[in-house]
Design a protein around this nucleic acid. Sequence first.
DNA 1: TTAGTGAGTTCGATTTCTGAACGCAAGAGG
DNA 2: CCTCTTGCGTTCAGAAATCGAACTCACTAA
Lengths: 153, 153
Amino acid sequence: MRWSEIDQQDCSVAQALSVVGDRWTMLILRDAFMRVRRFEDFQERSGAPRAVLADRLETLVGNGVLEKRLYSERPDRFEYRLTEKGLDLWPVLISLLRWGDKWETGKQGPPVEVRHKACGHTVHPELACPDCGEWLTATDMEATYRRNRTPVT
Amino acid sequence: MRWSEIDQQDCSVAQALSVVGDRWTMLILRDAFMRVRRFEDFQERSGAPRAVLADRLETLVGNGVLEKRLYSERPDRFEYRLTEKGLDLWPVLISLLRWGDKWETGKQGPPVEVRHKACGHTVHPELACPDCGEWLTATDMEATYRRNRTPVT
DNA sequence: TTAGTGAGTTCGATTTCTGAACGCAAGAGG
DNA sequence: CCTCTTGCGTTCAGAAATCGAACTCACTAA
């Protein structure tokens, strides 16, 4: 199977990765969440080569994750903003950030802080179950296929 | 900047992606969480080309995300298991799954269900703040650099 | 003896990525 | 008028990665 065909897998993770699983894409979205909107700024922040950046922005717009909006005319200038679909990727970014903080950051400590606007506190978000309210970790949970699949023996 | 140098960025997301941001890597980890342990099974499930799979497994072992363990001798056979560091990637996978469920799944509905072992319920985990207990979404939060960076104007 | 299993490795063809340069439309300064 | 700068890309040729298919090696089973 080639990478461009992974969206054919009957799996939501594969579907998600077919949209955001390319090199640079998540890094570009990280910057979008940091209020970066313009091509030059994305280029400088993410460090992605210009051609790759142009391609990724196009693709993200095509997938409805970013919206391309005219902000100036003659010559036309565009900016890229997160759509609702894009904003919904926040938990993915935060989870990556938390994992990076815990396992990959050197002695300088975490470079980015996440603040809760409402209470002003620095937050360290974790997963919980909206129904029972309990905190969740990998070993507490079990993923199972709803449709028929060869079970792993 | 080339992709192989993104771990030089002073950002935990970039650090995390330098480990799990390659093509196929997250898909392989998805399978690891579904109790896949052997090369042939990873190959069949993920669909990754054998050479790429071999490379990714090596790298994940090198980064301490998977552990390579001998399970049979003459000829030696190995299996790959998630370490504690690997298990900690669960929130990332779950967030991708939830996003895929919401935005990319067709009319068949989500193919995978996540059950809470303790209560037996199907759970739809979301991010919350362990301190104040509130549920968190992108618009409630604000990320800021602790170290000096050019602010985005 | 032949077939099968499990875990890779090798190979040549194709895709992608990369950096550097270029294009273009406009505004600013002289 | 002439040159410089800004913003947003595109083009190009070389380097790196990915791809499928075939191959290897060490066994076991029939």
